[in-house]
Simulated assay, not measured.
Amino acid sequence: MSTPVFEIRNVSYKYYEKMETTVALKDINLKIERGEFMAIVGPNGSGKSTLIKLILGIKKLQEGEILINGKRMNRRNRETKIGYVSQKAASFAKGFPATVKEVVLSGLTKKRGLFKKFNKEDFKALDEVLDLLDIEDLKNKNIASLSGGQTQRVFIARALINKPEILVLDEPTEGIDAKNVYSFYEVLTRLKESGTTILLVTHDIGVVVDQADTVACLNEHLHFHGSKQDFLKLDEAELSKVYGFPLQLVNHDHTRSCCEVPYAN
């Protein structure tokens, strides 16, 4: 059996504020295989953001461990093996005086160093990732002039130029209109077909379940982890119990019938 590219073992996390303790995550266990597309779903306040911060090293582990290729995650393998796209990427780009080329190449600074010049291999990697995401024509455009969907592709390119083991996307379609959301998920399909391992975190089940290989349903505990086919067999009562409020079955234009999860506090 092959070693998972990414593994979360017995991870728990609590917040301590004003003599009160809030459990954000309780005994989370997840494995992501190479080339897999996993969607982590759950309402707001379910612990998804906390889990991402632990994966990225923004927060320190309190209990449990995280492994990459069977080795305990540390600062070095985290930075070189995990590509990350924030939900705030599109808004960050507004008014930012840089070209697409400069933004994508900046993804190499952790690997090469801040003041080292880019070489022929770097520019080759730039062209390859721009071509993969079908944005080579935007190479010399100012990022502030792009649409939300185009901007997200640029930041995905920035995350991928280092050839990470896994691409982590946190609510990547926030602030993107419906037309560009559809285009964005087409990009993820292309990345999956190229062999990229994808971990997508979202509150919205409907727009991802048709594309993900596996689904993890998180709300403090890991309530479900399995194939999307098994996930779709869960009835509304089971899902509503997990989410703490009623769910409705709806049709999305670019997916089959699935569950719509509204925002919840």
Score class of each variant (00 low, 15 high):
165 E>D: 15
105 L>Q: 03
199 L>P: 01
92 F>L: 12
84 Y>W: 03
167 L>R: 14
160 L>R: 00
129 V>C: 06
202 T>F: 01
121 E>Q: 12
86 S>A: 08
102 E>L: 10
86 S>Y: 02
151 T>H: 04
91 S>W: 06
86 S>N: 00
148 G>V: 07
87 Q>M: 06
116 K>V: 01
183 S>F: 03
115 F>V: 07
132 L>F: 09
206 G>I: 02
145 S>T: 15
171 E>I: 09
92 F>V: 02
204 D>S: 06
183 S>Y: 05
151 T>D: 07
108 L>N: 00
194 S>Q: 12
173 T>M: 08
209 V>H: 04
153 R>P: 04
92 F>N: 12
85 V>H: 02
140 N>Y: 11
141 K>L: 08
122 D>C: 10
205 I>R: 06
120 K>H: 10
160 L>S: 02
200 L>I: 04
89 A>Y: 08
147 S>R: 13
172 P>M: 08
141 K>N: 11
172 P>S: 03
100 V>S: 10
158 R>K: 15
144 A>M: 13
106 S>L: 13
211 Q>D: 14
110 K>T: 06
178 A>W: 09
140 N>A: 00
84 Y>T: 06
168 V>K: 05
210 D>K: 09
114 L>W: 13
132 L>E: 14
169 L>E: 08
89 A>E: 10
189 T>K: 15
84 Y>D: 05
147 S>V: 11
123 F>I: 07
203 H>D: 08
188 L>D: 12
158 R>L: 06
207 V>G: 01
209 V>P: 02
160 L>M: 09
191 L>E: 07
124 K>N: 13
101 K>Q: 14
205 I>W: 12
168 V>R: 05
135 I>E: 09
159 A>P: 07
120 K>F: 09
168 V>D: 04
120 K>L: 01
131 D>N: 03
122 D>F: 14
